[in-house]
Design a protein around this nucleic acid. Structure first.
Length: 266
DNA sequence: ATGACCTCCCGTGGAGGA
């Protein structure tokens, strides 16, 4: 099973590229972030014509997340994280695809630091931690995947010293990520590529992609049973080089099939 | 230290992004 995440930076403005990449990559499930479209404007028909069912949690202008599944409609289990009912930003959607609980998320950016946006980011992270702990207790296959807006370590930043006071790299945010992973999750890309420089985002500014001045912001956190099934974890870096592309590249993992449930006969 | 670039909005520049 191939699961991908892609911050499209505008699902309608980027629809042609999304369809091109879907056709090329053929993932079984996809989590999209930054739809930048209200529910009514989600391009469900074009995505269905490409062979994908979808559930989505949109919002006018900003944010917005969706889950796509090839040849089926994802079974929606949640929109929004618990813990702050007055939070109206569309940043979490959850669905089951082929027996895997997929929590698709778009963590707040948090800039500028310090300030209310940074505080909101930390609160959102705390809510994610609390909910993630509940998911782990269920002991079912879960992946928490999306744009975390965090570079977890210095290896994940082209020039770490430039980012120390940025909300994406502040020590509080890195600690929050580390604490989350410490619950028992596996960072899929790091698990298979320890010590390797891997980026998933390149700024539009300053020719960042050509200089490979990137950040690793998009992460897959796997529950223990999914971690045991992890086979590949890669970035479709070339997509960032396409014309009119998003500033993020698609990232994907490949899981082996479920272990068979054969039992020994007594 | 700043702004570079890109998206969306009912806009004709501003806000948000990272």
């Amino acid at each position: 099973m191939k699961i991908a995440t892609y911050n499209v930076n505008g699902v309608n403005g980027r629809l042609d590229l999304l369809l091109r990449w879907l056709h090329e990559a053929e993932p079984d499930a996809v989590i999209l972030q930054e739809l930048k479209a209200p529910d009514a404007n989600f391009p469900a028909k074009a995505i269905a014509a490409a062979g994908y069912g979808a559930v989505w949690h949109g919002q006018k202008s900003w944010n917005g997340v969706a889950i796509l599944a090839r040849g089926q409609k994802p079974h929606l289990t949640r929109k929004g994280l618990p813990g702050e009912p007055e939070d109206e930003q569309s940043r979490y959607v959850e669905a089951i695809v082929d027996g895997v609980v997929i929590g698709g998320l778009y963590l707040p950016n948090g800039n500028p630091y310090p300030g209310p946006k940074f505080d909101y980011k930390l609160r959102w992270f705390q809510r994610l931690q609390a909910y993630a702990a509940e998911l782990l207790e269920l002991e079912v296959p879960v992946v928490l995947v999306g744009d975390y807006n965090v570079m977890p370590t210095e290896l994940d930043v082209y020039k770490p010293e430039r980012w120390t006071n940025d909300a994406l790299f502040r020590v509080e945010v890195r600690e929050a990520f580390r604490d989350l992973v410490g619950q028992g999750w596996t960072d899929a890309l790091r698990e298979l590529h320890p010590g390797e420089r891997i980026y998933t985002f390149w700024d539009y500014f300053r020719n960042a992609y050509a200089r490979d001045a990137g950040l690793r912001l998009d992460h897959f956190l796997l529950s223990p049973d999914l971690a045991a099934r992890l086979r590949k974890a890669e970035v479709d870096k070339h997509v960032r080089g396409w014309e009119h592309t998003s500033d993020h590249a698609p990232v994907w993992i490949e899981l082996s099939e479920k272990p068979s449930k054969k039992r020994k006969l007594k």
